[in-house]
Design a protein around this nucleic acid. Structure first.
Lengths: 124, 124
DNA sequence: ATTTCTGTTATATCAATCATATAACAGAGA
DNA sequence: TCTCTGTTATATGATTGATATAACAGAAAT
């Protein structure tokens, strides 16, 4: 798994890692049961501090994407609490939709955009 | 327009204001041409500092939701740069979709959820 | 003309967060 | 025993979030 830090981004390093791990899972590059690199290894590869990686892993654990075993490290283990996920997703989408409406992006535009994103994943 | 700060939230005050303004516009409670309360007025009403409100307004200006006139204050004036908006929306949705996929929320679920949010706005 | 309302700018301070650094610890495996 | 895990503890520096006080320029109302 490749993770790269954009040192010029205004997004926190640990959030960049967290997001890239989520994207890797979604794309199928990381399957449940597989382990993430150790905090020290990833820190070295990415050129950042161990604790920053550790924070990213802690967030991923808290959000239900990995479980951390002292010996094996962080393993992909997803918590499927559908109700919880739908609630969180809904409040996140409420703001996305509000922003869209302000900018005259309507319901159909949004549906189309989502399909577009789903379809672009097939091109690889 | 009513804006309330959740002092227990971990979300920055200026982002809470920014988000609530966007929601107010989307819901039609704030129309283009209307003005926001003055930074001092809103600060007093919400129980926070003037500069925090000022920061929220600056962000809203930078994101193309308001224009600020020295005499009138912040006026709703939306920049409709469709291409720009679609690009930003797309990268935002990519992560939302990735998170959803990890949690076994599929394409149809997402479409349904969006319709659900659109429809709930009609109930008022 | 003076007062009063805008946003804006300049400082300063304090707390929290982000990132780094060094160091040590416990547990598991080779 | 050595080496690999994550974990914990401390410390430091930079940045951000929020507050505070103060002053300024421009416009509007009286």
């Amino acid at each position: 798994m490749l993770i790269e830090i954009d040192f010029n981004s205004d997004e926190a390093f640990y959030m960049q890692i967290r997001n890239q791990v989520i994207l890797n899972i979604a794309y199928g590059y990381l399957a449940p049961g597989e382990t993430l690199p150790s905090v020290r290894q990833l820190a070295e590869d990415a050129g950042i501090n161990m604790h920053t990686v550790n924070k990213a892993y802690s967030v991923l654990k808290q959000e239900g994407y990995v479980k951390i075993d002292r010996r094996r490290g962080a393993m992909i283990d997803i918590d499927y609490d559908r109700m919880k996920v739908l609630m969180e997703l809904k409040s996140e989408l409420r703001l996305v939709i509000a922003k869209s409406q302000c900018k005259k992006i309507n319901r159909e535009d949004l549906h189309a955009l989502i399909d577009e994103i789903y379809d672009e994943k097939m091109e690889e």
